[in-house]
């Protein structure tokens, strides 16, 4: 039997939860609603329409930006996953002290404010005489993605029993084959979630891209930014909605996919790893 007090407690709890949800999601919900509104007014509902979505898909600038975004996200995530996984394996086999030091160093770029990372990358590119453009965005994204991959592969590596690798060699497998046959399947979930995380981070990034992109090339986020400065078009709402939904889906997939223990973004990840 529930007492009145219990019921009251429950009500208050639920009310609080709803309040938080409203704070978090009201702005995004507004954006999404407006993206379907058949009126350019930001305060009035003009009836349901898919017009802005249509306009968006017809715009060649938007489509070019979308293409850039996807290519950069995919390529940078892929390269960062290869480099990050190799790095994690190397770090994992180090002695405790160097391991702690290196893990600390890999964490710094994640703690660093994006604007600092962005500006320093830009300065570095200019200093080395690399002209800003598609390649520089790609390099920048690979750079900031590597730590995320390391952080998602590391826990998996720690769980794998070292003698499994030795057992494979004992049974006749040369080192590389031993790695791909028995170690890699064990860390694969970590590698995959590292890839998805890197992909999401790249998709999501504005500041670092902004500083490293140079003129004449845009990703979705930088495009939205420059369009918004010229006056907001409802097709930007549609675009933002699509970006939001995509990132949301990716995050849900990385976090809830079975057997997939992802270090929870940024600070959570640092807390888990920092001590080791």
């Amino acid at each position: 039997m529930k007492t009145t007090k219990d019921r009251l407690k429950k009500t208050v709890e639920n009310f609080y939860l709803v309040l938080i949800m409203i704070f978090l999601y009201a702005p995004i919900a507004t954006l999404m609603v407006l993206s379907f509104s058949n009126s350019k007014s930001r305060t009035q509902w003009g009836g349901f329409t898919l017009r802005w979505y249509g306009e968006m898909f017809e715009s060649s600038t938007i489509m070019a930006a979308l293409q850039n975004t996807l290519i950069i996200a995919f390529t940078s995530a892929l390269i960062a996953t290869v480099i990050g996984t190799a790095a994690a394996i190397a770090i994992n086999s180090m002695k405790p002290l160097p391991k702690t030091v290196i893990m600390g160093i890999t964490n710094i770029p994640m703690l660093n404010a994006d604007i600092v990372t962005g500006i320093s990358l830009m300065l570095a590119f200019i200093a080395f005489g690399i002209s800003l453009g598609f390649e520089t965005i790609l390099i920048a994204h690979i750079t900031f993605n590597i730590p995320y991959v390391i952080l998602s592969v590391m826990p998996k590596l720690k769980q794998t029993n070292k003698s499994v690798y030795e057992a494979a060699m004992d049974l006749g497998a040369p080192p590389i084959q031993a790695f791909f046959k028995v170690v890699f399947p064990d860390i694969l979930p970590g590698v995959l979630s590292g890839f998805l995380l890197a992909f999401t981070m790249s998709l999501d990034d504005f500041i670092i891209t902004h500083f490293t992109k140079g003129a004449g090339i845009n990703t979705l986020s930088t495009l939205i930014y420059s369009e918004v400065r010229r006056g907001i078009k409802p097709s930007m709402y549609a675009l933002s909605t699509i970006i939001f939904v995509t990132v949301l889906i990716l995050l849900i997939v990385t976090n809830f996919a079975p057997h997939r223990k992802l270090p929870h973004l940024r600070h959570g990840a640092l807390r888990n790893e920092g001590g080791q």
Binding site: S163, V164, E166, A167, M169, D170, P174, A178, V182, D186
Partner: peptide, 20 residues
């Protein structure tokens, strides 16, 4: 000689079976 080239096999303390 590396382990994979030796004519002997090991049974490890923690079994080290391939779980996948």
């Amino acid at each position: 000689l590396p382990p994979n080239k030796r004519q002997l096999n090991t049974v490890f303390q923690k079994y080290a079976l391939f779980t996948h």
